[in-house]
Deep mutational scan, measured.
Amino acid sequence: MQYKLVINGKTLKGETTTKAVDAETAEKAFKQYANDNGVDGVWTYDDATKTFTVTE
């Protein structure tokens, strides 16, 4: 399945996608991506759209 990440950071904004077997695996990949880019915020997930959002 394909999952999307929407980033609403202080210095980084945008979107990225990943393919993963489940939401938990996608979340780990997205959190690593956010961490690598210095984004630390509040996470939400919408199962209907398979979209994670992180807001600083």
Rank of each mutant, 00 (worst) to 15 (best):
M1L: 12
M1V: 15
M1S: 13
M1K: 08
M1E: 14
M1R: 09
M1P: 09
Q2I: 15
Q2Y: 10
Q2T: 15
Q2K: 08
Q2D: 13
Q2F: 12
Y3T: 00
Y3D: 01
Y3N: 00
Y3F: 12
Y3R: 00
Y3W: 07
Y3L: 01
Y3Q: 00
K4E: 03
K4S: 08
K4D: 02
K4I: 13
K4F: 12
K4R: 14
K4A: 05
K4M: 08
L5A: 02
L5H: 01
L5M: 06
L5R: 00
L5S: 00
V6M: 06
V6W: 05
V6Y: 07
V6A: 03
I7A: 03
I7G: 01
I7K: 01
I7W: 10
N8I: 15
N8A: 09
N8S: 10
N8W: 11
G9K: 05
G9F: 14
G9R: 04
G9C: 10
G9Q: 05
G9T: 15
G9D: 03
K10T: 14
K10Q: 15
K10E: 13
K10V: 14
K10P: 11
K10A: 15
K10N: 13
T11M: 09
T11W: 15
T11I: 11
T11Q: 13
L12G: 10
L12N: 11
L12M: 12
L12F: 14
L12P: 03
L12A: 06
L12C: 12
K13N: 09
K13A: 08
K13Q: 14
K13T: 14
G14Q: 15
G14T: 15
G14P: 05
G14I: 15
G14A: 14
G14W: 15
E15P: 04
E15G: 05
E15M: 05
E15H: 07
E15C: 06
E15V: 07
E15L: 04
E15R: 05
T16Q: 11
T16E: 07
T16R: 14
T16L: 13
T16F: 15
T16H: 15
T16G: 04
T16N: 06
T16S: 10
T16A: 13
T17Y: 13
T17D: 06
T17W: 15
T17C: 07
T17F: 13
T17L: 09
T18S: 05
T18H: 08
T18N: 04
T18F: 12
T18D: 03
K19E: 14
K19C: 09
K19Y: 15
K19A: 10
K19M: 15
K19V: 14
K19S: 13
K19P: 05
A20F: 10
A20Y: 06
A20P: 02
A20M: 04
A20L: 03
V21R: 12
V21N: 13
V21L: 12
V21G: 11
V21H: 12
V21M: 12
V21D: 11
D22T: 07
D22R: 04
D22C: 04
D22M: 04
D22S: 10
A23M: 14
A23K: 14
A23F: 12
A23C: 09
A23Q: 11
E24N: 10
E24W: 12
E24L: 12
E24Q: 14
E24Y: 10
E24A: 15
E24F: 14
T25C: 06
T25N: 09
T25I: 07
T25G: 09
T25R: 07
T25P: 03
A26T: 00
A26I: 02
A26K: 00
A26G: 02
A26Y: 01
A26V: 03
E27W: 14
E27C: 06
E27G: 10
E27N: 05
K28I: 13
K28Q: 11
K28S: 10
K28G: 05
K28T: 09
K28D: 05
A29H: 14
A29E: 12
A29L: 13
A29G: 05
A29F: 15
A29I: 15
A29Q: 12
A29W: 15
A29R: 10
F30L: 06
F30M: 03
F30A: 02
F30C: 02
F30R: 00
F30K: 00
K31N: 04
K31I: 09
K31M: 09
K31G: 03
K31Q: 09
K31H: 10
K31R: 15
K31L: 09
Q32I: 10
Q32W: 06
Q32G: 05
Q32V: 10
Q32L: 10
Q32A: 11
Q32H: 08
Q32D: 10
Q32R: 09
Y33N: 02
Y33Q: 03
Y33A: 03
Y33K: 03
A34N: 04
A34R: 01
A34Y: 03
A34W: 03
A34M: 08
A34V: 10
N35G: 12
N35Y: 13
N35W: 14
N35H: 15
N35Q: 11
N35I: 14
N35L: 15
N35R: 14
N35M: 14
N35S: 14
D36P: 02
D36R: 06
D36F: 09
D36M: 10
D36T: 10
D36I: 10
D36L: 10
N37C: 07
N37Q: 12
N37D: 03
N37V: 14
N37I: 09
N37S: 09
N37T: 07
G38L: 08
G38V: 04
G38T: 04
G38A: 06
V39Q: 03
V39H: 05
V39Y: 06
V39T: 03
V39L: 11
V39R: 02
D40K: 13
D40W: 12
D40S: 12
D40N: 13
D40A: 14
D40Q: 13
D40L: 08
D40C: 07
D40T: 13
D40P: 04
D40H: 15
G41N: 02
G41V: 01
G41L: 02
G41T: 02
G41R: 01
G41P: 01
G41A: 02
G41H: 02
V42K: 09
V42N: 08
V42G: 05
V42Q: 10
V42W: 11
V42S: 09
W43A: 00
W43L: 03
W43M: 04
W43G: 00
W43Q: 01
W43T: 01
W43P: 00
T44R: 07
T44D: 11
T44P: 00
T44E: 10
T44M: 09
T44F: 11
Y45Q: 01
Y45N: 00
Y45W: 04
D46V: 06
D46H: 06
D46K: 04
D47Y: 08
D47E: 15
D47K: 13
D47Q: 10
D47A: 13
D47N: 11
D47M: 09
A48D: 11
A48Q: 07
A48K: 12
A48P: 06
A48F: 11
A48G: 12
T49P: 02
T49H: 06
T49Y: 04
T49I: 07
T49Q: 07
T49V: 06
T49A: 08
K50P: 00
K50Y: 13
K50A: 08
K50H: 12
K50V: 04
K50M: 11
K50S: 06
T51L: 04
T51A: 04
T51W: 02
T51P: 00
T51Q: 04
F52M: 02
F52P: 00
F52N: 00
F52D: 00
F52E: 00
T53G: 03
T53M: 08
T53Q: 05
T53R: 05
T53E: 05
T53W: 08
T53H: 06
V54M: 04
V54T: 03
V54F: 03
V54R: 00
V54Q: 00
T55S: 07
T55R: 05
T55I: 08
T55L: 06
T55K: 05
T55N: 08
E56L: 06
E56H: 06
E56G: 05
E56Y: 07
E56F: 06
E56I: 09
E56N: 04
E56K: 03
E56T: 05
E56A: 06
